[in-house]
């Protein structure tokens, strides 16, 4: 088979992102990760919800499901559980994943299904033109919080760790090469992987800009960080809350734990659940549990 390049994964649909949107970086990083792993586009499903970032599947030549707001994860789980041979990637924004979809987020993580979840976190609702999101910082003025946000933002990394995540990473779309490694690592990881991506919204978030991030971002791997220690991972996940000048990116935590698919009675056979109806005798056997005969 010919080597696949980034072009092999790009559809002829032009992304709808605003000029300068962080999500271009995620688009590029994702296709770079595909190239690095030589992922078969016909054997890959990219699932999204609703929001600017959820239009990403259209930019790709893979199979895609662009579903409804907040429900990318359960759709992705359904795809993977029905056919575990497919590469399944869920994508979306912070409103989609940490707001309306927060319940699914926690449960998808604790199941450890082999899905890579990329959240393009811009701390704002962009497609609905600038309301507060679950990750908007305290004090931030938005259309829905004209007097400033008064709720504490969700800390997705700490929440993921508390939910039993086996791969937790954070990237910055201003560094797509680094991000591609994090995504690739997530795809190679057996089990659920979360890649929270700080992906600036140039139109509606004037606080968390590229410059704002660049002043704070540093790479965990450059500080000799070991991602196998969960207590250290919590510490790093909470670092920005303690010191607003430090914003670590990289792999926060990675551990080995059985995938859901390897534990489930049906799925551990290793194949897709399949297609064929049972034989008539097999149905009759099941009906015999209800027989009125006394054998």
């Amino acid at each position: 088979m010919d080597m696949l390049t980034q072009e092999s994964y790009k559809s002829d649909i032009k992304p709808i992102f605003c000029p300068g949107c962080g999500d271009y970086g995620v688009d590029a990083a994702l296709t770079k990760a595909f190239v690095d792993l030589q992922i078969d586009p016909d054997n890959t499903v990219v699932v999204s919800g609703i929001g600017c970032s959820s239009s990403l599947p259209h930019d790709l030549k893979t199979y895609g499901i662009h579903g409804i707001h907040g429900r990318a994860l359960p759709v992705a789980e359904g795809v993977k559980l029905a056919n575990r041979n497919l590469n399944v990637i869920a994508v979306g924004g912070d409103g989609d994943g940490y707001g309306i979809g927060a319940g699914h987020f926690v449960h998808a993580i604790r199941r450890n299904i082999d899905i890579t979840y990329i959240v393009m976190n811009n701390e704002i609702y962009g497609l609905t033109t600038g309301q507060a999101s679950p990750t908007s910082m305290i004090g931030q003025k938005t259309k829905s919080t004209p007097f400033g946000v008064i709720e504490r933002p969700i800390n997705p990394l700490a929440l993921a760790l508390a939910s039993g995540a086996t791969y937790v990473a954070r990237g910055f779309s201003g560094d797509p090469m680094h991000l591609a490694k994090l995504i690739g690592g997530g795809m190679k990881h057996a089990g659920f992987s979360l890649i929270d991506v700080q992906s600036p919204c140039v139109s509606f978030n004037k606080l968390n800009t590229y410059d704002w991030f660049r002043k704070r971002v540093y790479k965990l791997e450059d500080s000799g960080y070991n991602p196998n220690d969960i207590m250290k991972a919590y510490e790093k996940a909470l670092e920005f809350d303690m010191d607003p000048n430090k914003f670590p990116i990289g792999v926060f935590y990675e551990t080995t734990s059985p995938e859901y698919e390897d534990l489930d009675v049906t799925l551990k056979a290793g194949t897709a659940v399949g297609w064929n109806a049972p034989k008539k005798e097999e149905v009759a056997n099941v009906l015999n549990e209800y027989t009125t005969e006394y054998a």
Binding site: I65, R71, P74, V75, G78, A82, H104, H107, T266, A272
Partner: peptide, 22 residues
Amino acid sequence: FFKQTEDEIAAINMTIGAASTG
């Protein structure tokens, strides 16, 4: 395959995902 889900929203969305695979 059977999955008990976190809510009925997840149940139907998973069903849609599974059905999409055939």
